[in-house]
Amino acid sequence: MATMLFKGFAARSLTTRLTSSCYYGMRYSSTVSNDPDSHDDFKPANKLENSGTSLSNIVEQDVKDNPIMVYMKGVPDFPQCGFSALAVRVLKQYDVPISTRNILEDPELKNAVKAFSHWPTFPQIFIKGEFIGGSDIILNMHQTGELKEKLKDDVSKQ
């Protein structure tokens, strides 16, 4: 049950991290785009299109800036796919900041991530810039203790 308590904490610190560390509008915290009633015309404009920064650069920057970067379906507190939920649940067992992007809200970002990692499905987890894999792999690494080692390493090097 300590996990439950921790979950609340983690979610809060995560939001702070996300909004402060990401320079491209965090769709995650936007309530507008989640509103099923909002017409396409009124959704937040895609800042990426105007920024002149290519999407693959965004992904590259993401994984460089965030020790743990997860591209997922939904958001950590409301994953919209069982596999994404599993990945977040596993990572939340560790006392580490998790940064995420919701690929459901941005098909172009979704394709850019897939092209970047050459991996067909989501979630996709990057630790310290290294592509780790999807939910099966993160669960396996959690079970074997490999993830613990990797994250311990990660924290001490920060």
Partner: peptide
């Protein structure tokens, strides 16, 4: 490595993956 193994499975199912939404390699 596990990642490579999963990549091999993904590659073997490249065609099928176009229609598969969820593939779990247990």
């Amino acid at each position: 490595r596990l990642l490579e193994r999963h990549r091999m499975v993904n590659a073997a199912l490249e065609e099928e993956m176009k229609e598969i939404h969820a593939l779990s390699v247990k």
